[in-house]
């Protein structure tokens, strides 16, 4: 009884408000390099947060820390009120609730497009193959690659592969989606087809954390823009505020460089 009460207290005190993703005083070092400096960051349900910043600012590390692909040195990360557990079964369960889309797609090279999407639901959630196939086809249709289902990843273009990767993540019915520079490895003409899918997803109310250089996406779909530099969150504002009236010199500098090219 006391334990239950204690756990209840811990749960309610750790997560302020209705934050779905919450980082408290998170620090990480790579050897000497302090890549995440005392990060405090909350994302509410349904919110779309774009993380931008110069390369090496720690934005990818932040994104990967949220589903513990990167471990942190100290601080707390919680998803939907649950602290990220140590590596193991429990962490695997939690990761199933956090979809992730990578810069390099990372589709399973030896599986067909359809199998890429159904593998998680079948093996992790124990869904029947028939049901998983049906869901997967609907998702593949939704991202516009339904007719590619029997092919292998290498037979698809980068833009198509990335859309499949989004479908694969969505198939787990995640509470939040992380995008780690999803368009950085794509040819310019393929970027928009991926962004369109993401914008659609944002409209449907998915909670999203997107690390990107696509300012157009930030303006169009983001509720908040978080600007990082040297491992710190320097600004956290609405897109309108951030792009028209950045407060810090780092952000002004960054934006001016974007605009002059």
């Amino acid at each position: 009884m006391w334990q239950m009460f204690a756990r209840f207290v811990v749960m309610t005190t750790q997560v302020p408000g209705d934050a779905l993703v919450s980082l408290n005083a998170v620090n990480k070092h790579y050897g000497q390099l302090h890549v995440l400096k005392d990060i405090n960051f909350q994302v509410r349900k349904g919110e779309v947060v774009v993380v931008i910043g110069p390369s090496g600012s720690g934005k990818s590390t932040l994104c990967r820390a949220i589903n513990r692909l990167e471990t942190i040195d100290d601080g707390e990360i919680s998803i939907d009120g649950k602290l990220l557990p140590e590596e193991g079964k429990e962490l695997a369960h939690l990761r199933a609730d956090v979809g992730m889309v990578f810069q390099s797609f990372n589709l399973f090279a030896h599986k067909t497009i359809l199998e890429n999407v159904t593998l998680g639901p079948i093996k992790v959630k124990g869904m029947s193959k028939a049901e998983a196939d049906k869901d997967a086809m609907a998702l593949l249709e939704r991202v516009g690659v339904g007719h590619q289902a029997p092919k292998l990843p290498a037979q698809l273009s980068g833009g198509q592969q990335q859309r499949v990767a989004i479908a694969r993540a969505l198939a787990m019915k995640p509470k939040v989606m992380l995008f780690d520079e999803p368009t950085s490895a794509l040819d310019p003409e393929m970027i928009s087809e991926v962004l369109d899918v993401m914008i659609q997803l944002a409209k449907e109310g998915m909670t999203m954390i997107v690390v990107t250089h696509e300012m157009g996406f930030a303006r169009k779909a983001a509720d908040r823009v978080v600007f990082m530099a040297d491992g710190q969150i320097v600004e956290d504002a609405t897109p309108e505020e951030f792009f028209t009236n950045p407060q810090s010199s780092r952000a002004k500098d960054f934006l001016s460089k974007l605009l002059t090219h």
Binding site: N67, E87, A96, G99, M100, F102, R168
Partner: peptide, 20 residues
Amino acid sequence: GQAEAARSIGMTFGQVLSLI
């Protein structure tokens, strides 16, 4: 990245190894 993608959809170490 193959292992990272597999872990990110919730596979355990054994599943990542044997399936991917």
